[in-house]
Amino acid sequence: MNGISLFLRLVAASLRGQARYPASAMLLTLSQFLATGIEVVAIWALFDRFGEVQGWRIGEVALFYGLVNVMFALADALGRGFDVLGTEFLRTGAFDRLLLRPRSLALQLMGHDLRISRLGRLLQGGIVLLFASAQAPIAWTPAHLALALFAIAGGVALFLGILVLQGTLAFWTVESLELANVFTYGGVEAGQYPMALYARWFRRLLTFVVPLACVAYYPGLAILGRADPLGAPAWVGWLSPLAGFAFLALSFGAWRLGVRHYASTGS
Score class of each variant (00 low, 15 high):
50 F>P: 01
37 G>E: 05
87 T>A: 15
65 Y>L: 11
54 Q>G: 00
77 A>L: 02
37 G>A: 02
46 L>A: 14
65 Y>R: 04
78 L>E: 07
43 I>W: 11
69 N>Q: 10
67 L>F: 00
62 A>D: 01
40 V>W: 10
45 A>C: 09
57 R>I: 10
66 G>D: 01
74 L>M: 12
62 A>Q: 00
37 G>T: 00
59 G>A: 04
44 W>K: 07
67 L>M: 15
64 F>M: 12
66 G>S: 03
91 R>S: 15
37 G>N: 01
83 D>G: 01
93 G>Q: 12
50 F>M: 05
68 V>C: 06
46 L>V: 13
46 L>S: 05
87 T>K: 15
62 A>F: 13
69 N>G: 01
74 L>N: 00
72 F>N: 07
41 V>T: 08
78 L>I: 08
93 G>S: 13
39 E>P: 01
41 V>S: 04
39 E>M: 14
54 Q>Y: 11
74 L>Q: 01
72 F>T: 06
63 L>Y: 00
59 G>Y: 02
86 G>L: 14
73 A>D: 03
60 E>H: 03
86 G>R: 11
80 R>L: 06
42 A>F: 15
93 G>T: 13
93 G>F: 13
47 F>G: 04
55 G>D: 09
79 G>D: 08
78 L>T: 06
85 L>Y: 08
88 E>K: 14
76 D>Y: 08
53 V>E: 06
47 F>E: 06
87 T>V: 15
81 G>D: 14
89 F>D: 12
66 G>A: 03
82 F>Q: 10
92 T>I: 11
73 A>M: 02
63 L>P: 00
92 T>K: 15
50 F>K: 04
77 A>R: 05
46 L>D: 01
66 G>F: 01
85 L>S: 14
89 F>H: 15
42 A>P: 05
40 V>F: 08
51 G>A: 10
61 V>C: 06
49 R>C: 02
57 R>L: 07
45 A>Y: 04
46 L>H: 04
85 L>F: 11
45 A>K: 13
92 T>H: 13
61 V>I: 09
70 V>G: 04
79 G>F: 07
84 V>H: 13
57 R>N: 07
68 V>E: 08
68 V>A: 11
47 F>L: 07
48 D>N: 15
86 G>E: 14
42 A>H: 05
54 Q>M: 10
59 G>L: 06
68 V>I: 15
57 R>V: 09
49 R>E: 11
66 G>K: 01
81 G>F: 10
